[in-house]
């Protein structure tokens, strides 16, 4: 049982680290701010979630607390993504790489 849980923890840590690497690679490679937001948001949701799974499997943390923290991350992550996208839009930073843009330009202030 312990060996099984440790195996689960190892897999979760490896996959979580993989997602972090992909997120940073996306932040460097993708062409504009809006695209980068998609990649960066994944560290919070996948990377930290999988590390929390590993810590619960190793008995370093109570499951109830981990579930609450997971809920917080899933609820708050999109809010920051949207706030950053909205800030970029209102500052007039257009989606340079876009193939199609249905969004009207921001109101002048």
């Amino acid at each position: 049982m312990t060996a099984l849980l440790q195996g689960l923890a190892i897999v979760a840590i490896l996959v979580g680290t993989g997602f972090s690497v992909v997120a940073v690679a996306g932040y460097i490679r993708l062409p504009d701010v809006y695209c980068r937001l998609h990649a960066a948001g994944k560290v919070g949701v996948f990377g930290v979630t999988l590390l929390l799974v590993a810590s619960v499997a190793l008995g370093a943390q109570q499951p109830g607390k981990a579930v609450l923290l997971l809920l917080f991350l899933v609820l708050a992550g999109p809010a920051t993504s949207h706030a950053l996208a909205s800030a970029a839009y209102r500052m007039g930073l257009g989606p340079r790489a876009a193939r199609r843009n249905d969004l009207p330009p921001p109101p002048p202030r």
């Binding site: 997120a23 932040y27 980068r36 937001l37 960066a40 560290v43 930290v48 590390l51 810590s55």
Partner: peptide, 28 residues
Amino acid sequence: NVVDRLLGADLIGALTVAVLVLLSLLRA
């Protein structure tokens, strides 16, 4: 630009959280 940098800072914060969780597992 500013939003790009703010996004980078947010990413650094998320990675710091991951580092601290890993440290806590390693050091018990």
